[in-house]
């Protein structure tokens, strides 16, 4: 078993696209069910982080912008670490991620363990 990081990106909030209270709650439930399912297989290596909205991006030459790196339309929203035998298996796990149902994306990356 190796560790793979799943990196979640959501579409930048479009005010026209605001989700209702109920929709938000359904997403949270789906998310917990998905995480619980990974944990039930004993394949959750780390619950990782859900990222907050206090953001600053620093660039060369003392350029600081409050907010995420501007060129990225999809905003980084969090990450978890799973245990899998192969990239293919990690991808299978990622397929169930509820963010895919709201136009978000999941990047699956192997991890290099630093000596």
């Amino acid at each position: 078993m190796k560790d793979f990081v799943l990196i979640f990106r959501g579409v930048n909030d479009d005010p026209a696209n605001q989700l209702s209270q109920q929709q938000m709650q359904d997403i949270m439930t789906n998310w917990q069910n998905w995480m619980g399912g990974i944990a039930a297989q004993n394949k959750l290596a780390s619950r990782g982080y859900r990222l907050g909205d206090e953001i600053s991006t620093l660039k060369p030459g003392n350029v600081v912008t409050d907010g995420p790196y501007a060129e990225i339309k999809e905003m980084l929203s969090g990450l978890i670490v799973v245990k899998a035998d192969s990239l293919a298996e990690a991808k299978e796990i990622a397929k169930g991620c509820p963010i895919l149902q709201i136009n978000g994306s999941v990047e699956v990356r192997s991890v290099i363990v630093m000596g």
Partner: peptide, 8 residues
């Protein structure tokens, strides 16, 4: 939901 959290 409690089992989901417990397993995590």
């Amino acid at each position: 939901q409690l089992y989901n959290k417990l397993l995590q």
